[in-house]
């Protein structure tokens, strides 16, 4: 009971700081401007073009046939939003969650907290705070994308299906963000500096993703290697059928639990 109350107080402080600090506002403005630009393009006719069989050839070449099917079988604006968002979620989620325990440790603010609350409560509160921020950002993006999909929709009686798929896409992206939040809990606990945590998190993830993309791996080895990072789940997320996407979400939650557990192990042992 006391732990839950402590976590609540810390999360409230965390969110207040995030939404009032220059860094937090900068992230939201950057996130908003980016999606404003992308969604305006989709609303301008790009979404409809992506859903045509002619574009399907290009999309298959760029991604795979599942993505091409996704764009043809689902509302194209939302499907295109899902494809772009899934590619950029690691970047945005890491940006939004890079400062979990890093500032606490770097400025030694944690020394005001430790005599009052347990380390586990601090760690969980920062993790929950970062998860709420990324969820909030994905929610805003999802609402905007669904609105655009409704506006560009020309078929009558499709509003319900679009809203339902919009909610599904938003849910997928929220869950797909969580592994990055868990990853940054690990990196921020290890680095004790927001800048360094971001550099190591993004740099490490980027280098590994690039190495996996360029490595001449084939078959089962390639599949297994792709799961070294949560990006390996993306092909399953970007399918028109619900089953693979749900499996990808379950996998994402697994990564989240694993990274968060490792983050906790680093945080609980480190000197402050």
């Amino acid at each position: 009971m006391r732990a839950r109350r402590h976590i609540g107080v810390l999360v409230r402080q965390d969110l207040r700081y995030t939404f009032s600090s220059a860094r937090g506002l900068l992230f939201l403005v950057f996130f908003g401007l980016f999606w404003g630009f992308v969604l305006s393009k989709l609303a301008g006719g790009l979404a409809d073009q992506l859903g045509t069989p002619q574009a399907g050839f290009l999309v298959t070449w760029l991604f795979d046939s599942n993505v091409a099917r996704l764009l043809q079988e689902r509302p194209p604006a939302l499907a295109a939003y899902l494809v772009v968002a899934a590619m950029l979620t690691p970047l945005f989620a890491m940006l939004a969650s890079c400062d979990q325990t890093a500032t606490d440790l770097g400025t030694r603010h944690i020394r005001f907290l430790i005599p009052r609350v347990g380390r586990a409560e601090i760690f969980v509160a920062r993790l929950v705070g970062a998860s709420i921020v990324t969820t909030f950002a994905q929610l805003l993006g999802g609402i905007a994308a669904t609105t655009v999909a409704l506006v560009v929709n020309k078929e009558a009686g499709q509003a319900g299906a679009i809203i339902s798929y919009g909610a599904q896409v938003t849910g997928f992206l929220i869950i797909y963000s969580l592994p990055m939040v868990g990853l940054m809990s690990l990196v921020s606990a290890g680095m004790a500096s927001v800048g360094l945590a971001l550099l190591v998190g993004l740099g490490g993830y980027g280098v590994l993703a690039a190495a996996l993309a360029l490595a001449p791996l084939k078959g089962a080895v390639a599949t297994i290697a792709s799961f070294l990072i949560p990006g390996g789940l993306k092909p399953y997320l970007l399918q028109p059928e619900l089953g693979p996407a749900l499996a990808a979400c379950a996998g994402a939650l697994g990564y989240f639990v694993l990274y968060s557990f490792l983050g906790w192990q680093v945080f609980r042992r480190r000197n402050t």
Partner: peptide, 27 residues
């Protein structure tokens, strides 16, 4: 147990009374 640490910093941008109130809530 309370401590005055030698080198701990308060959170930038948040009024000190709010920060003290948060610490009191934790107590």
């Amino acid at each position: 147990v309370a401590i005055l640490p030698q080198d701990a910093a308060f959170v930038r941008g948040v009024p000190v009374q709010s920060q003290l109130a948060m610490l009191a809530e934790l107590q």
